[in-house]
């Protein structure tokens, strides 16, 4: 990984709310075309950090540069080169997926064919469905499709797989890897360590508003083992999730 190629750089980011500090002096860089994971418990400051980079929230202090633009001065330019999937977001009521895609194309000021965007996330069969009528996995795939409309350089995914069944989760991993392979940088938050291990090139652990570790998953695991850590139980070559996938089939399912 070429370390000079940072597309996002965060320096000493601080976010204070009235009576508590959500983010206390975080610094990290995200490299071009990697999948970067922000890991940590709820309330550690992951979402706050993401939303500040996405220019949705004001920071208290610190410096953030996204693809050469500062969040302070060029928020609107940053918005045009990023795609954002929020942890909780709604879509305009009473519209079907194609109409929502048209709306977002207008909002980003780009010309895209709504059906092509839906095909990217395998939702072409749901073109006339309302967002509300989608399953959890379909909703997340649709959300990701809306982040791709402006052919962004970076997409931010905030807990995209929370609440999904194992198939839907794996479908989403495939989709995220595809997006990265097409040249987009991905920043993702998650609670699932297996997901981070599978997907992420590098991960940062966030705890109480600070980064307590940042490295590739492999290095982090090796460091722990080198320090003399041993699992209490020997790991088998498969786990229960593998059994679940094996029994219920790995292919796209209608309801995921």
């Amino acid at each position: 990984m070429d370390k000079t190629n940072a597309i996002i750089s965060v320096k000493n980011l601080v976010k204070k709310y009235d009576d508590f500090t959500a983010v206390q002096g975080i610094s990290f860089e995200v490299y071009q075309n990697e999948i970067f994971g922000l890991l940590g418990p709820n309330g550690a400051g992951k979402t706050t950090t993401l939303e500040i980079i996405e220019t949705l929230r004001e920071k208290t202090s610190g410096e953030i540069i996204v693809d050469g633009y500062s969040v302070d001065k060029d928020a609107s330019k940053i918005k045009r080169i990023i795609g954002v999937q929020l942890q909780a977001a709604g879509y305009y009521p009473n519209l079907n997926l194609v109409e929502l895609m048209e709306l977002f194309a207008g909002l980003y000021g780009v010309d895209v064919k709504p059906m092509e965007m839906l095909e990217k996330v395998n939702l072409q069969d749901k073109a006339k469905a309302k967002y509300k009528a989608l399953s959890g996995g379909q909703k997340q795939r649709f959300s990701i499709a809306t982040t791709l409309i402006n052919s962004p350089k970076i997409i931010f995914l905030d807990e995209p797989t929370t609440g999904l069944d194992p198939q839907a989760r794996r479908n989403l991993w495939d989709l995220i890897i595809d997006i990265r392979n097409n040249g987009t940088t991905v920043v993702i938050t998650t609670h699932y360590m297996d997901e981070a291990e599978q997907l992420c090139d590098r991960v940062a652990f966030v705890e109480r508003g600070e980064i307590i570790a940042l490295d590739t998953p492999d290095n982090l695991i090796d460091n722990l083992i080198n320090s003399g850590f041993e699992r209490q139980k020997e790991v088998k070559k498969a786990n229960l999730e593998d059994v679940f996938i094996n029994l219920t089939g790995k292919e796209w399912r209608e309801d995921n």
Partner: peptide
């Protein structure tokens, strides 16, 4: 009210609109 409540507006703010 409902666009604000259902975070539709928040999603809009993530676009350049």
């Amino acid at each position: 009210f409902s666009l604000r409540q259902t975070l539709v507006i928040k999603r809009f703010f993530a676009t350049p609109v």
